[in-house]
Design a protein around this nucleic acid. Structure first.
Length: 643
RNA sequence: GGUCCCGUAGCUCAAGGGAUAGAGCAACUGCCUUCUAAGCAGUCGGUUACAGGUUCGAAUCCUGUCGGGAUCACCA
């Protein structure tokens, strides 16, 4: 099957249009940016005599070249206030000094009003982070979101593309959960059709009763091997057929000018398979028997699929993903016909002379699409309509997210538009989380060329790399704990590598270089956590009191940077949820870890010059560790105890 | 050909319309007798594909051009 990952969207369904949650912008209380926005808006409003929307006031962290912590951008208001930027800044700055309890000083550079905050603000911020259980998690909204991801075929093992799909789907689910939604995770398993019949037939003919157990193979690989074997045998049959007089005659009769025999037969293969191949005929026969419910065929089908599921479960367990419900194409492939009937009655669909049913989306920039064949059987989109409604009936989710590669953008655009015209109640909440294919440096992965990167192989390789690096470092721990640490590091590296790039981007994976463990990586972030973990253990051992922290008054820039980063976390989660984009969380965690590594290097923590500085830095470290752990948890990355 | 997506350092990627476009990798150079060097710091590397436009301000928004990809099945 040409498309391993059966599913797809369009950006025309923008978040804003489809997401009612967008209106709720929860931020934790006393947020400094919200407060500054309001104060600045009020100050400008007073100056120019008309009300200003606080959300239009842009507040940024001050760039390092200037003195200050946060900067209000005043350019947009100079015309309104009819003052020079500097004068406007001075008036707003003075008012902030007067009216607020937290602004210590200000300075103006062009239209930028740089604000320096008083020390007590930083202490309060730190205490709030520490005192908020699940800091960064948002209140429950009582709204349900269903996320579909993975969507495997049962004729072969999972590959690199599925890994990206699973990691995106999982992290997106975690992020939506943290943003306050009730998330249902599902997969649709493509368990029927020609592909699995090929594996079945090959096993029947050549398997000689072998099983995954007798061969010592994972079930999905075992079944996949028969799929490959089928393709090999077919190729052999085709090669032999090409030598026959019948084939030669066809070539002479139908060749295009200048077309070589090789090119001709390459093009002719599908037709040959359908019209001449003995194996092709047998597969079609098997599929017919499956559809007729032949008991032997169904028994074989169940047997082979159960082998595959065992294998999938093992891979999912390695990836740390799971599902609340599985949907099977064998259950859903006949669905949607009643919807077609409704659509005809509503006049959304129309019937052609041959009896096939269509929808005309040309006014929306799409084509006419068939939704039911002339013989009354379903097509892909019919099933998807049926499945969508089934899910809505199962869970009542107003929003459903499909994590599917971008090659299916058109399909999902059409599906969503169709459901909208049918007036389905969840239609506005449909979203296709469309991600770019993972490519190799040589281009797209191709089954036929044997360039598919297998998921299990990939995981094994990264594990091996992490093990090797741990050995080189002369790890201080051994046994099961060491192995668990290595597993977390390896998977952390793999997951961060896949998630940190924007979903929509195609990404290139170079198996030669594998996955880095240094630099901008998962282990880099884990390492900063491990450092803190070590400090905390020591603090506990030595019974260090942390209550003196508030006595510390002259904060270092490195400390403020960390606190500013901590403040951002809840809004990062929200943005990631709104945009269905886990890469925001990944890049945030990296920034936070980077800031911490710098502080670690620049400033003594345990050996700080005074007990209150030590207490403050330990508390700050704890807040960073807590936030890093929470952020990585959203990506499915666990922390090793030691590195 | 129509539609959609993408084009940022040699490579892999960041950057809510905001100040001098940032990281990592690769190459070179420093830093372990102080909390773990899977770390830190430095050097090198950019006309953000190109041309216009909008704006106080554009990698970001608009138009066009060029380049890459996907898709345009009564396949799933």
């Amino acid at each position: 099957m040409a498309h391993e990952q059966l599913r797809r969207s369009s950006r025309r369904l923008t978040y804003r249009a489809s997401c009612p949650g967008n209106a709720i912008t929860f931020a934790h209380m006393n947020d400094i940016v919200l407060a500054l926005q309001q104060e600045v808006a009020a100050a400008i409003a007073q100056l120019c005599g008309q009300s200003i929307d606080p959300s239009k006031v842009q507040i940024n962290p001050t760039v390092s070249e200037f003195k200050g912590d946060y900067t209000a951008v005043l350019f947009p208001f100079v015309k309104l206030a009819q003052k020079a930027p500097e004068a406007l800044g001075a008036e707003v700055g003075e008012r902030l000094l007067r009216e607020t309890t937290y602004v210590k000083s200000y300075n103006i550079a062009k239209g930028f009003l740089n604000l320096e905050l008083k020390e007590h603000f930083w202490h309060e911020l730190l205490q709030e982070v520490l005192a908020t259980p699940g800091y960064g998690r948002h209140p429950r909204r009582g709204e349900c979101v269903l996320v579909e991801y993975s969507s495997p075929n049962t004729n072969k093992p999972l590959h690199l593309g599925h890994v990206r799909n699973c990691l995106l789907g999982w992290s997106c689910s975690q992020i939506l959960d943290a943003a306050g939604y009730d998330v249902i995770k599902v997969q649709i398993i493509n368990d029927r059709g020609v592909a699995i019949c090929k594996s079945m037939l090959a096993w029947q003919k050549f398997g000689q009763g072998r099983t995954p157990q007798t061969e010592g193979l994972k079930g999905d690989h075992f079944v996949g091997d028969y799929y490959v074997l089928f393709e090999q045998k077919t190729q052999e049959e085709y090669a032999a057929w090409q030598q026959t007089p019948e084939a030669q005659a066809l070539y002479e009769a139908h060749r295009k000018p200048e077309q070589s025999q090789k090119e001709f037969f390459k093009e002719y293969k599908n037709r040959w398979f359908n019209e001449h191949s003995r194996l092709g005929a047998e597969v079609r026969d098997l599929l017919l028997r499956w559809e007729a419910g032949d008991p032997d065929t169904l028994a074989l089908w169940r047997q082979m699929n159960s082998w595959v599921y065992e294998g999938f479960e093992a891979t999912y367990a390695q990836l740390g993903v799971c599902f609340d419900k599985n949907y099977y194409e064998s259950d859903t492939y006949l669905l949607g016909k009643n919807i077609v009937e409704e659509g005809l009655q509503k006049g959304v669909f129309f019937k052609k002379a041959d009896g096939s049913v269509w929808i005309d989306l040309s006014d929306a920039g799409y084509d006419q699409k068939v939704v039911l064949r002339a013989d009354g059987t379903s097509v892909y989109i019919t099933q998807d309509m049926g499945t969508a409604r089934m899910r809505y009936e199962d869970f009542g989710c107003q929003r459903m997210v499909y994590v599917v590669a971008d090659e299916q953008n058109y399909h999902f655009a059409v599906l969503f538009e169709t459901l909208r015209r049918l007036g389905e109640p969840y239609a506005e909440g449909l979203y296709h989380l469309s991600y770019g294919l993972v490519e190799l440096p040589t281009g797209r992965m191709k089954t036929r060329e044997g360039t598919v990167v297998d998921a299990d192989d990939l995981i094994a390789e990264v594990l091996q790399l992490a093990r090797q690096q741990a050995a080189e470092r002369g790890s201080s721990i051994e046994g099961p704990e060491a192995e668990e640490n290595i597993r977390r590091i390896a998977m952390g590296a793999l997951k961060f590598f896949m998630i940190r790039v924007h979903p929509k981007r195609r990404m290139v994976f170079n198996p030669e270089e594998s996955v880095d463990l240094q630099g901008q990586t998962g282990p880099y972030i884990q390492y900063s956590w491990v450092r803190i973990h070590g400090l905390m253990q020591r603090a506990e051992r030595e019974g260090i009191q942390l209550s003196a922290a508030a006595q510390y008054t002259s904060l270092e820039p490195q400390e403020k940077e960390l606190l500013k980063a901590l403040r951002e976390y809840p809004s990062v989660v929200l943005t990631a949820a709104q945009e269905y984009d886990p890469s925001h969380v990944a890049n945030y965690a990296y920034q936070l870890a980077k800031n911490y590594h710098r502080l670690w290097h620049d400033l003594p923590i345990f050996n700080a010059p005074s007990p209150e500085v030590r207490a403050f830095r330990l508390q700050l470290s704890r807040a960073v560790a807590q936030t890093l752990e929470a952020a990585l948890h959203l990506l499915g990355i666990e922390m090793p105890q030691r590195m």
